[in-house]
Amino acid sequence: MSRKNFPLRISPDLYAALERWAADDLRSVNAQIEYLLTRAAREAGRLKPPPAPAPPPTEPES
């Protein structure tokens, strides 16, 4: 998957909060920001939900 790079200006206080939150979730700050933006966009109906996982294959009955 390709990614779009862009500069982001946020306050030092917000960055510190994101840094702590990312550490709690074992993510980088960048991954935490992407996660939060993705979740917000889905909740607002602006981004399609991820595709549902395929059901596991069933075994034939004997």
Rank of each mutant, 00 (worst) to 15 (best):
R39S: 08
P56N: 05
P56L: 11
A16R: 09
L36G: 04
P60E: 07
A41L: 12
D13M: 06
D24C: 07
Y15D: 13
L37T: 11
S11G: 09
P55S: 06
N5H: 12
P55V: 02
L37V: 10
L47T: 00
Y35G: 03
I33E: 02
S11N: 05
R46M: 14
K4W: 11
E59S: 07
P55K: 04
M1D: 09
L8I: 06
E19Y: 08
V29A: 01
A44W: 07
A44Q: 13
R9H: 07
T58I: 10
P51S: 06
A40N: 08
E61D: 10
S11T: 09
S62D: 10
T58D: 15
T38V: 07
T38W: 08
P60V: 03
L14C: 05
A44G: 05
L36F: 05
L18S: 00
P50G: 02
E34C: 12
Y15W: 06
R46I: 12
P50N: 06
E34H: 13
D13L: 06
S11I: 02
R9D: 02
I10Q: 03
E59T: 12
S62E: 09
E61R: 14
L36A: 14
R27K: 13
M1G: 11
P56W: 02
A23T: 11
L26C: 09
P12Q: 15
A17P: 00
E34F: 06
P49K: 09
D24T: 14
S2H: 15
K48I: 07
E59A: 12
G45P: 01
L47Y: 04
A54L: 14
W21T: 09
L8D: 02
D25H: 15
D24K: 11
Y15A: 08
S2M: 15
E34D: 13
D13W: 00
A31V: 04
T58S: 10
T58F: 10
R46L: 11
P55Q: 05
K4D: 15
D24G: 08
E59P: 04
N5W: 12
A41T: 03
I10E: 00
P56K: 05
P49A: 12
A44D: 12
R20C: 07
N5K: 14
L14S: 04
E19L: 10
R3F: 07
A31Y: 02
T38S: 05
M1H: 11
L47H: 03
Q32K: 11
R46A: 13
F6K: 13
V29E: 00
D24I: 15
Y35M: 10
G45Q: 00
E34Y: 04
P50W: 08
K4E: 15
S62V: 08
P60A: 07
L36R: 13
N30D: 15
A16E: 09
I10L: 08
V29M: 01
